[in-house]
Nucleic acid binder design. Structure first.
Lengths: 241, 241
DNA sequence: GTCATCATGTAAGCCGTTACATGATTGC
DNA sequence: GCAATCATGTAACGGCTTACATGATGAC
């Protein structure tokens, strides 16, 4: 889980531990405040597994997300940075870069359809946050699976709640939860619609010969026309729950 | 946490493990589907700690929530039940009853203000579900603490989200989460208002001499006139998160 | 000079899960 | 007779938290 989140962030750019934590918290709202005692060991595991490469860094130009050329190996880039400014910079922080193996693992993790569809909010949120790396069908399945799950819970709750006298506090809680779930479902419905609309556009384009052959993997999906279709879409919990 | 939930349910009536799980899931939506590998050991711990008393039951009248007189000790009630119908009934299931010590522990757990106010949704939900057992001031504090927390997260998220270009999926997630949090906050505001209104009624009543002296502990709070004040109040996530 | 923030890590422990094992009762 | 549900438990493990330990840098 945490591994998936880390790899997802590193897909975009190389980052150091502290920064990963910040992104997770502020940018995605997932893992509200992952602890270091959890984060650093996870990074070590990933490194041992060959999914990421750590480069010790001491230079000032550390802030630069893309190390300009990219042709320099991690080790060399670090050395160069150290030479450029020996004493300056934020102290030896380790910047992590995802490897080929890491990308492979990320794809596997992201696509893995957690046995029996028992997906919790966190896991779903995480996958959705990285949904752009998912092939369209998998993306749609993810959304539909989540929707089905929430819908089922809703009917179960309604059945159970029907004939039970709860005190005002418990009742308020249950009702609020139910409403939240309903909102979550209609949010998912909007996402699903947008997804379907996009899929049909692609098909139409492909039929008229404007686009290449039927795609099965991601990458083709980054600069599509979804932007217009996905408007006024919202919510989730974001806490560790 | 689980202990608190169990004790809370047992405050109301005696139950067996399987049933506790069901209540938690269907009635309160908390601990969506607590596993037995978690529930039974918890019950054992509580029993060892003297917080609950287990009575082995084999009789049919097991369904009866209140054992009519209440004067019979657990052991005797079980014996009586076994004698009444030797072979019938659901097989030896263990019905748990809360003890004095258990009530004391429950109160402590419920009131304990989890260091530094780092309260997650689950913990809050659980406490709210049993808020009727809390003295009014503690109840108010619980609501206000939670509100403050959500409000803070909201401002932080807004600050971080301001200048960040997220892809449509991540953005939709973040926006939806934000809206959910906003709704949670206004829900809490309604609860807080209701709580304050109730408090002032009590004070007014006390001043005119209609009620007894200023109460500090619960019990006095069960049949108040909140019912009218708490209307149209709702939501939460309810998942294990 | 000292405090806040940045930065990395280890050790112990909590709280939950899955998988396994068992068996009675009820309905088809 | 067989499957579903009710019912209780154990063992192993997963994943995250807290507390502890360390140290540099920048702002006041």
């Amino acid at each position: 889980m945490l591994e998936l989140a880390i790899l997802g962030l590193l897909e975009d750019q190389e980052l150091h531990g502290y920064e990963i934590r910040k992104r997770l918290r502020d940018e995605l709202g997932l893992f509200s405040n992952i602890s270091f005692g959890s984060l650093y060991p996870a990074l070590s595991r990933l490194e041992r597994a060959g999914a990421v490469q750590a480069i010790e860094e001491t230079g000032v130009d550390a802030v630069d997300p893309v190390p300009m050329t990219g042709s320099l190996s991690g080790e060399r880039a670090a050395l160069r940075a150290r030479r450029t400014s020996p004493a300056r910079g934020r102290r030896g922080r380790k910047v992590y870069r995802i490897t080929h193996e890491g990308r492979r693992q990320f794809t596997d993790l992201l696509a893995s359809e957690v046995g029996a569809g028992a997906e919790d909010a966190r896991s779903f949120g995480l996958r959705l946050a990285f949904a752009r790396y998912l092939p369209p069908q998998a993306r749609l399945r993810l959304l539909e699976r989540r929707r089905a799950q929430l819908a089922q819970r809703l009917t179960e709750t309604r059945a159970a709640t029907a004939g039970s006298r709860l005190d005002p506090y418990a009742r308020s809680l249950v009702e609020h939860t139910t409403e939240s779930t309903e909102r979550d479902i209609s949010w998912l419905d909007r996402l699903i619609d947008a997804e379907r609309a996009r899929a049909s556009h692609v098909i139409a384009a492909a039929t008229t010969g404007a686009t290449g052959p039927g795609p099965t993997e991601h990458d083709e999906w980054e600069h599509a026309e979804w932007r217009t279709e996905m408007k006024g879409i919202t919510q989730m919990e974001g806490e560790s729950r």
